[in-house]
Design a protein around this nucleic acid. Structure first.
Lengths: 206, 206, 206, 206
DNA sequence: TCGTAATCGAGACGGTACGTCGGGTCTTACG
DNA sequence: CGTAAGACCCGACGTACCGTCTCGATTACGA
């Protein structure tokens, strides 16, 4: 099947060296000067690349950054040797969730992740198209891990069978996300532990 | 003591007509063309105002929009005749929370609020200073109402006394916020009702 | 009568300092690096001026240069204290023409005039609109002086009465112009003297 | 002796088909969109040729066009069956010159010659190197024909023996050239006839 | 009641970045 | 090898806005 647009670039001739340099430059600039002051020209110049080489493969600054961040995430995952990742299942749901959320807390404090992911989240709020990619390619795959773990817990009797896991996970994941994104409160192990307890046992007296 | 700088404009001479026109133009433009394509020049021209008049009183596009939105919120609240607002207390905590969250669902679907508040939230993620104002002037006052209602419930015995209300409210408020901001799922009455149930009674079997 | 276009700039607010700086920069650059390597960006940067300030008042590089050159010519003429210029009339037509053409030879060898006027001539060949302005504002006024002198000579009996002065002047002016523009031969006093003799007395034996 | 550089392409392997296509494309584009909007990329794409094939054999757009135009001129001359061309010698110099100049007038009005030769002339004014080739390969050979004819006339007594034919011819050729190049006046048979009369018999009364 | 000092509408200005075009070089696959 | 194709680095284009800076023309005090 032929390409549908005029001027569809030839992927096979693409320069891997340029792509890497662009990813590195984009992430570095966002970390150093912040997302709004990061410009396509700045990325190009830092990467030692022509502007056109960026425009040939991406449609916007946000687009570049999303790919750069996805690449970074994949690299990080591979480096950790855990590509088919999943939440551990020790039989104790509360303990497992607390463990994972504590790891998430650490990650959220890592400045290398902070700047780009915050920027992408922000852009995604206002840019429909990017928001969709952000959610589909970054967020949902992570959330799916919680769905799996909760479903396992349901089968083991640790979670009520009528509970919808996709909603249930939001009880502890969304609060953490909001605190981080909007700086509405401190992010600590104690906080995430508390979220898990509240979510599992409810606010009402038993 | 005299003012030492060339700045410090005289508030008493300020043109009310201009301020109103700027608010209206800012909100209209954000709704029509979106936040990124809204420019200071555009606001000035639409408001029939010189650029300097904007720069004299605000420091940035986001700054203008935040004030415009605060003004809009106050107007809306006054129009509803309920300025010192609070969450109703019928004695039935679940019912009260569900009622309020349903009202919030309706508000989130109102396009007049949608565009500016989403834009402000996005800007706040990336702009530290604006983020603080956004949270302090818009978000926290709303959350405080939940704190009050939950504390009342604790005294009435409907919520465990060791629960921290500021954290507890996040169990149902943050999921709704995230779904709305990041389009991670549908926003319905059923959904918010479910959140309240899960939060109050927990995910684990009783 | 109101202006006919959207965004007609306000001439009265125009910055004289910027205009001067732009003229100087344009002429200097054309002289230093040549017309093709002279860029609007280069002019703007050298003049310490924003690009938009150039685009606001001129439509192209050639347009700027033409105005710069006209300004230079006027300045030079004023400096010479001879604004309402004319060809001298000593009664001896041949002598007067030789005198003026020798002055022209000197001028054509002046590097300050050389670069810009050659560039403008070249651009005018290919750019209809500019060509018209070039001819009307620079060339024709000069040629008119010859028309006047030749007409005076006709009345004095030094030129046949049936001769069209506008054509006659081309016999000595055009050859000089072509030699200069196209480097088709040396430009000397001897050469222009010869042209005058040939033109006045013809090639055929008498 | 081997070639020392990476350059120096092998002329014998050159693709004749490509050269023809490039000439055609260049001339067509100059005629259609004008010289400034004619680009190397445009020529290559229209000729169905890689850019490198152009850069291998020519050094610039002007260079291509000059060769294309020379080729066109040769073709035209051959088609007219008069390759070793010369100005006719009927014994009547005035008549012969008028005849040839009338033919030139016709040629100057031919749109197929107009666009490229005007473009080349313009480029030659500003581009030293091209200007030399333009004059040497196109202009001078033509002018030489007038030199020959004038010399013949001198021997026949129709032109004064002390007259320099190379200068003499400029009296009627240059005015025509200037009018055409700079649009400084209409180009008609009457005009060229007049030029010949003025040049031969002079402006002064006899 | 009238200066007079501020704000105001307007928009020119020096800049930065945009997204596009084309230049000239280099690489790949084919004939 | 020469060639068609086109990606690449680069420089300039012409445009959009930024935030600052004059300009009169209102406008609202305070003498």
């Amino acid at each position: 099947m032929a390409q549908n647009q005029s001027s569809a670039p030839d992927t096979s001739r693409r320069s891997e060296r340029s792509r890497r340099a662009i990813y590195d430059a984009a992430l570095a600039l966002v970390a150093e000067v912040g997302y709004p002051k990061t410009t396509i020209e700045g990325i190009a110049s830092r990467a030692g690349v022509g502007k056109q080489t960026i425009y040939r493969w991406w449609s916007s600054k946000a687009d570049v950054l999303l790919d750069a961040f996805l690449d970074l995430s994949n690299q990080a995952a591979e480096a950790a040797g855990q590509v088919p990742y999943s939440i551990p299942d020790s039989g104790d749901l509360a303990a497992d969730l607390k463990y994972v959320l504590r790891a998430t807390v650490d990650e959220l404090h890592d400045p290398a992740f902070e700047a780009p992911s915050r920027a992408l989240a922000a852009e995604g709020l206002v840019n429909e198209e990017l928001g969709r990619r952000f959610v589909a390619q970054l967020l949902e795959p992570q959330l799916q891990l919680y769905v799996d773990r909760l479903r396992a817990a349901q089968e083991a009797g640790g979670v009520r069978p009528d509970v919808d896991p996709r909603i249930a996970l939001e009880l502890f994941v969304s609060p953490l996300a909001q605190r981080w994104l909007q700086h509405t409160g401190p992010i600590t192990y104690e906080y995430t532990d508390t979220l898990v307890d509240y979510a599992l046992h409810g606010l009402a007296p038993r």
